[in-house]
């Protein structure tokens, strides 16, 4: 986008407009009812129409305000942190908390380039001990700590 407009606001406005449009189109399947007996779709209709109007307002102000470029996204950090979190969730119930913690520390650790292998290993050990003490032994959380299949060996 050219730097003559406030690109941040235009992108924001566009996002709001898209959200409003998606919301309104989903809302078509719900009964509106009448003003005195409102159906499930009445309030969403008001909310998403308002959102759309505000989205237009933000877009318009983006064309009128001081020029501003879109901020760059920290894709590497974003993807690594969210992936660490999701993989932690995927491992938690079936493979156990220990595996989840190790995965979380290692993957999220990659997001900071100043990390060292030794530092991360130490951090993982400390967290394993604390989490076992607090959640497994103390609060007796329902998830296994060690991988369950190890019990069958």
């Amino acid at each position: 986008m050219s730097s003559k407009v406030n690109a941040t606001d235009i992108a924001s406005g566009a996002m709001l407009l898209v959200l409003a449009a998606v919301g309104l189109s989903i809302n078509l399947q719900y009964p509106l009812g009448t003003a005195s007996r409102m159906g499930a779709g009445y309030m969403p209709l008001i909310a998403f129409v308002t959102l759309g109007i505000l989205g237009m307002g933000v877009t318009v102000s983006g064309f009128r305000g001081a020029p501003r470029r879109l901020e760059n996204w920290a894709w590497r950090e974003l993807v690594l942190i969210l992936a660490a979190f999701a993989i932690f969730g995927a491992l938690l119930e079936d493979i156990g908390m220990a595996a989840g913690i190790i995965a979380m520390v290692v993957i999220s650790g990659l997001a900071d380039r100043t990390q060292t292998l030794k530092g991360l290993a130490g951090l993982a050990v400390v967290l394993l001990i604390i989490c076992w003490l607090v959640f497994s032994w103390g609060l007796q959380i329902r998830v296994p700590f060690f991988p369950p299949f190890l019990n069958n060996v």
Binding site: I81, A84, F85, A86, G89, I101, M104, L123, L127
Partner: peptide
């Protein structure tokens, strides 16, 4: 650099423990 992985771990376990649901962990992400 040592704090944030620890915070993430506690967030993850915390999010899970509300309903014992992995879905809540994904929702958080």
């Amino acid at each position: 650099k040592y704090l944030y992985p620890a915070i993430l771990v506690f967030c993850g376990i915390g999010a899970y423990s509300i309903n014992n649901s992995v879905f809540d962990v994904y929702q958080t992400a």
